[in-house]
Every structure is written in C-alpha cells, then in structure tokens.
Deep mutational scan, measured.
Amino acid sequence: MEVRTIKVFTTVDNINLHTQVVDMSMTYGQQFGPTYLDGADVTKIKPHNSHEGKTFYVLPNDDTLRVEAFEYYHTTDPSFLGRYMSALNHTKKWKYPQVNGLTSIKWADNNCYLATALLTLQQIELKFNPPALQDAYYRARAGEAANFCALILAYCNKTVGELGDVRETMSYLFQHANLDSCKRVLNVVCKTCGQQQTTLKGVEAVMYMGTLSYEQFKKGVQIPCTCGKQATKYLVQQESPFVMMSAPPAQYELKHGTFTCASEYTGNYQCGHYKHITSKETLYCIDGALLTKSSEYKGPITDVFYKENSYTTTIK
C-alpha cells in the first residue's frame, strides 16, 4: 500500500517557510505537534488534498525554529505562539472599519479597549522592536488589523473576551517599542525636605499616572512627601515624541487643539466601556464603527496623549 502524501510549508514567522512532505494517514499533531492554519487549530486533523502548498504555523520545537521565533517575536515564552494563534482565530472574524481616516474595530468580545489602543497607536510616533509587531502594525494602518490585535493580546497575556485596560495595554506595548531616546527629568520640591531631581528613561519617561493635564504637570502637581507634608512635583525636561497622561476616570474637559487623542471610560472596574476622542479640525468621538463630532467635550476621561518633541522648564 502506497503512502499518500502532500507537500506543505511549516513556519513560526510566515517569513521562513520549511518544506514538509506530510503523510495523509496521520494527523498534523502526530507529525508536527500543535499546528495552526489561519489561526485555526488543526492539530487533530489529517492532511487533505486542499492543504497542498498551504502554510501551517507550528510551535518552535527545534533550534532553527526557536531562533526564527525569537528573532521575529522577541520572546522565548513557549506558550506565546499558541496564544497568538488562538487569538487570531477570533480577531480574523472582527470587522476593521476605516473611521475618520483611522483603522478602528467594530465592537465584539469586549474589544473596546483594543480599538482605543489601536486608534491611539496610529496617532503617536512609535516604532516597535519585534519585527512581528512592526509588520502587523503597518498592515493594521492599511486596514488589516487582525494579526496586530492578536499579537497585542498575546504580548499582554490576554484572551479574547476578557476586559482590558488601555493604560495597561499601552504599557505592555511600550515595553516592546523603541523608547531608548526618551528621557524625563522631574523635580520634587518640599518646604521641609528641599528639592530632589529624578531622571527617568524609556517607558517611565512617557507615562504618568495622577493627572490628565500635561500643562498642569509642567506647572506642578501636589504629591505627598515622605515627611508627610505636601510637596510639588513638576516637569523639568521632556525628550520624547509623545507623552501619555493618565488618571482614574473623572469628568474632564478636553479643549480642541490642546491634545492629540484621549480615552474615555464609562462604567466601573468590573464592567465598563471605552471610547476614543481625537482632536482634528474639530473633536471626534470614535466608538467602534461609530463616529460623532463636537466642538467641545466633557466626560469621564482616563488617558490623554500629547505630541511632544523637546521641553525644558522655565521655572527657576
């Protein structure tokens, strides 16, 4: 009895394709271990004539594949690729409408935090270190965002349907971005203890939790000093293409032309909904596939993004 075979390709990165001759009487799992086709788990399936010449994702289970996976995804987590594939199996079914010149995501599976993050990423200057993220990001900007969303979920250790947080998501993504040249110098002034300067680099240099107003941050924000008295913390120097200011959701007025974009969060910790506000020729609110415009805006804002380049204080 002759062994019926077909020729397929296996890959971990969709760049390096490895030619395989597979036995049609055995499952993919018996031949390769966990195997995925377009995100779908085909591990328990036997090869079919229609699979001839198709590319299958496999887990990096030998040295060659491990090197290829690390170079593309910059992670050695053995569960990463499987999590990416199972997320992709959902995100490829989502709709990605162009809204006001940006790629958004039609609401499904509690994905409003991903839509808000995706919209924000198209408006701030950011370059990702893992080629996987950078490639998928370019495709997302062009309207094909399924891979990018699935990668975000995998890097953030999230599953489809789980509630997510924009600030946490951005923080994970910033860790995989090139923020080497970003720098922030802060000064804390206390009447009792004097003053202390701190220099922050990388992710810490672009994120701040405690106030939404970048102007206020430049002037000074009140913080408790270690001595128990009130101290003032203010920005001395900022070198970065953008800054992200966050605070627990509270009524906040966004003035046209003073910011790049913002995240609105309605609801409580267990259950809520994100919308995205962007400042173009007027203010726009993007909620999944829905767009509304207004000249002014007041609502429960939790993150505001500002364009920056270089700032030095005039406070002496």
Rank of each mutant, 00 (worst) to 15 (best):
E2S: 09
V3H: 15
R4H: 11
R4T: 12
R4K: 13
T5N: 13
K7E: 11
K7N: 10
F9K: 10
V12A: 08
V12I: 11
N14F: 07
I15A: 07
I15V: 09
N16C: 07
N16R: 10
L17Q: 14
L17D: 07
V21W: 11
V22L: 12
M24F: 10
M24E: 11
S25C: 10
M26K: 13
T27N: 15
T27F: 14
T27K: 09
Y28P: 06
G29C: 09
Q30R: 11
Q30G: 12
Q31E: 08
F32S: 07
F32H: 12
G33S: 05
T35F: 09
L37C: 11
D38V: 11
A40K: 13
A40S: 13
D41E: 09
V42F: 14
V42P: 03
I45A: 12
I45S: 13
I45F: 15
P47S: 05
H48D: 14
H48I: 15
N49D: 15
N49G: 11
N49A: 13
S50T: 12
S50P: 08
H51C: 07
E52R: 12
E52V: 13
K54M: 13
K54E: 14
K54H: 13
F56A: 06
F56I: 09
Y57D: 06
V58R: 07
L59C: 11
N61M: 13
D62A: 08
T64Y: 11
L65T: 14
V67I: 14
A69P: 05
E71K: 10
E71L: 08
E71F: 06
Y73R: 03
H74N: 08
T76S: 13
D77N: 08
D77Q: 07
D77P: 04
D77K: 05
S79D: 15
F80S: 02
L81S: 05
L81G: 07
G82M: 14
R83H: 07
Y84N: 05
S86D: 14
A87F: 03
A87Q: 07
A87W: 02
L88C: 05
L88Q: 05
L88S: 04
T91F: 02
T91E: 04
T91R: 04
K93M: 09
K95E: 15
Y96I: 03
Q98C: 11
G101R: 05
T103I: 10
T103M: 05
S104C: 12
I105Y: 03
K106V: 14
W107R: 06
W107P: 05
N110P: 05
N110S: 03
N111R: 01
N111K: 04
L114T: 03
A115Q: 10
A115G: 06
T116D: 06
A117V: 12
A117L: 04
L118T: 05
L118Q: 05
L119E: 02
L119I: 06
T120F: 03
Q123A: 07
I124Y: 03
E125R: 07
E125V: 05
E125F: 02
L126S: 03
L126M: 08
K127Q: 15
F128S: 03
F128C: 04
F128K: 03
P130F: 03
P130Y: 00
P130H: 04
P131D: 01
P131L: 04
L133K: 06
D135I: 08
Y137T: 03
A140C: 13
R141K: 15
R141A: 10
G143A: 04
G143H: 05
G143R: 03
E144H: 11
E144Y: 11
A145F: 02
A146C: 07
N147W: 07
F148V: 04
C149R: 02
C149F: 03
A150P: 02
I152V: 10
L153R: 00
A154I: 04
C156D: 00
N157C: 06
T159C: 14
E162M: 07
D165R: 00
D165G: 07
D165F: 06
V166E: 01
V166K: 03
T169L: 08
T169C: 09
T169P: 03
M170I: 08
M170H: 05
M170S: 06
M170Y: 03
S171K: 14
Y172K: 12
F174G: 03
N178T: 06
N178L: 06
D180L: 06
C182P: 01
V185I: 13
L186G: 04
V189P: 03
K191I: 10
K191D: 11
T192A: 11
T192R: 12
C193M: 04
C193R: 02
Q196N: 11
Q197C: 09
T199D: 05
L200Q: 15
L200N: 07
G202S: 05
E204K: 13
V206N: 00
V206K: 00
V206T: 01
M207F: 07
M207W: 06
Y208P: 00
Y208T: 10
G210H: 01
E215R: 06
F217H: 03
K218L: 05
K218E: 03
K219F: 06
K219M: 11
G220Y: 00
V221W: 06
Q222S: 13
C225D: 02
G228T: 04
Q230H: 08
Q230Y: 15
Y234V: 09
L235V: 11
V236F: 06
Q237R: 13
S240N: 01
S240G: 06
S240W: 00
P241T: 09
M244Y: 01
S246P: 00
P248W: 12
P249D: 02
Q251L: 12
Q251C: 13
Y252L: 08
Y252I: 14
Y252Q: 09
E253F: 08
E253S: 10
E253D: 10
K255E: 14
H256W: 15
G257F: 01
T258M: 11
F259C: 00
T260F: 07
T260M: 14
T260Q: 08
C261V: 01
C261I: 05
S263V: 11
E264L: 06
E264M: 11
Y265P: 02
T266L: 10
G267Q: 11
N268R: 13
G272T: 01
G272H: 00
G272A: 00
Y274K: 01
Y274L: 01
H276A: 00
T278I: 11
T278Q: 09
S279P: 05
S279L: 00
E281R: 04
E281M: 01
T282Y: 12
L283R: 00
Y284G: 06
D287E: 03
G288N: 07
G288P: 02
A289S: 12
A289E: 15
L291F: 15
K298E: 13
I301Y: 00
I301R: 01
I301D: 01
T302G: 02
T302F: 00
D303G: 03
F305G: 00
F305L: 07
F305W: 08
Y306P: 00
Y306S: 00
Y311G: 07
T312D: 08
T313K: 14
T314N: 15
I315A: 15
